[in-house]
């Protein structure tokens, strides 16, 4: 498998916008000239139920259609999942885990065994509530991914949001989302 392949696994609950965020990451990848693939773990969509989604980003065309077994990046949009699911399952020792929580990485690591993996935290739900007015953590998580992985820059995310949201939403909503991404980018803790 190519060294330039990034495999992302999303853990969330139905309704938190993980699939929408995975699509946004895919679109950002396209704009960067990358190959990509984004897909949920398929099943009936149920609000509140734990869901898993996957994103692959690569410099080369992606031909594998199976679920991601060894993610380089694990995103946890809901910290209450940490007790119920082993979010690090299959993730290599150098994987990055980004958790939506107001706890510090040190506090979180004291409660959950992440092994040697990098753990970052960001209060995405709080940020979304304050900037967008809805406590949906998906957009701020994009900012955290940008910061943690360097797959795309903060400017590129902002540009993408203005271009894609600008067609559908009011300026207030667009700028709220831009602010959410910017704050998450700056408030990620490691």
């Amino acid at each position: 498998m190519s060294a330039r392949l990034t495999e992302v696994r999303w853990h969330a609950r139905g309704g938190q916008g993980a699939v929408t965020a995975a699509k946004m990451v895919a679109e950002l990848a396209v704009e960067r000239g990358k190959h990509f693939q984004a897909f949920p773990e398929y099943g009936p969509e149920r609000s509140g139920a734990p869901i898993v989604a996957f994103t692959r980003i690569s410099d080369e065309p992606i031909q594998i259609y199976s679920p991601i077994e060894s993610p380089n990046v694990v995103l946890v949009l809901d910290a209450t999942l940490l007790g119920a699911i082993d979010v690090t399952d299959g993730a290599p020792d150098d994987a990055v885990v980004i958790v939506n929580t107001d706890q510090s990485p040190a506090d979180l690591k004291a409660q959950v065994d992440f092994g040697t993996r990098r753990v970052l935290t960001v209060p995405a739900t709080e940020i979304a509530g304050q900037t967008i007015g809805r406590r949906i953590p998906n957009t701020p998580m994009i900012g955290a991914i940008a910061k943690a992985t360097g797959l795309f820059t903060l400017d590129e995310v902002e540009e993408h949001l203005r271009a894609s949201f600008g067609k559908k939403f009011s300026e207030k909503v667009v700028e709220g989302n831009v602010e959410a991404v910017r704050r998450a980018y700056n408030e990620v803790r490691e």
Partner: peptide, 10 residues
């Protein structure tokens, strides 16, 4: 179904 129908690709 799902593998292609629901997956976002280029």
């Amino acid at each position: 179904g799902f593998i292609i129908s629901g997956a976002i690709g280029p």
